[in-house]
């Protein structure tokens, strides 16, 4: 089992991601989430969005992956959750952040979040990282 020398309050990130329409289509294909709000602008507008929006799961995926890259080989989330507070639009930067909230020898708890260009938190996440 691996371990990490993390301390409470340690920052994770930042990581900036920009989801292109191609990314959204690739994500739709690999996750089987073909909701039109993620690639059909006319439909997204009819649903009350300004244009196509980034999948919530994709934003959560950015956050989880960022934390696992930080945690190193063998790391995996035994618990992970995300709450979506705001939409992120295709082609706009998404800033991913995280912080260690509890650090033990073989277990780390983290909070993660995304921010849009207006510095509004659009995704709030938390999880428990362990090592295989």
């Amino acid at each position: 089992m691996g371990e990490i020398n993390a301390v409470k309050g340690e920052r994770i990130g930042p990581l900036t991601m920009v989801a292109t329409k191609t990314d959204l289509v690739k994500f739709a294909g690999s996750s089987q989430d073909f909701n039109l709000i993620h690639y059909d602008a006319d439909y997204a507008i009819s649903r009350g969005f300004p244009t196509v929006i980034v999948h919530g799961f994709l934003k959560a995926g950015y956050l989880a992956q960022m934390a696992l890259e930080w945690a190193g080989p063998g790391a995996w989330f035994s618990e992970f959750g995300a709450t979506y507070r705001g939409v992120d639009l295709v082609g706009q930067p998404i800033l991913c952040w995280g912080v260690v909230t509890k650090a033990e020898k073989d277990r780390v708890e983290v909070e993660l979040w995304t921010e849009n260009v207006a510095q509004e938190k659009t995704t709030l996440s938390e999880g428990v990282i362990q090592w295989q």
């Binding site: 690739k26 994500f27 294909g29 690999s30 996750s31 799961f57 959560a60 950015y62 696992l68 995996w76």
Partner: peptide, 28 residues
């Protein structure tokens, strides 16, 4: 193939280096 494509889109640096699927793949 789905896992590798998914991994690339979420920014995994080495999409094929682990047999573990991405954390959020439960949504798929």
């Amino acid at each position: 193939t789905d896992v590798e494509r998914y991994s690339r889109v979420i920014g995994k640096k080495n999409p094929t280096d682990s047999e573990f699927v991405p954390t959020t793949f439960f949504g798929a």
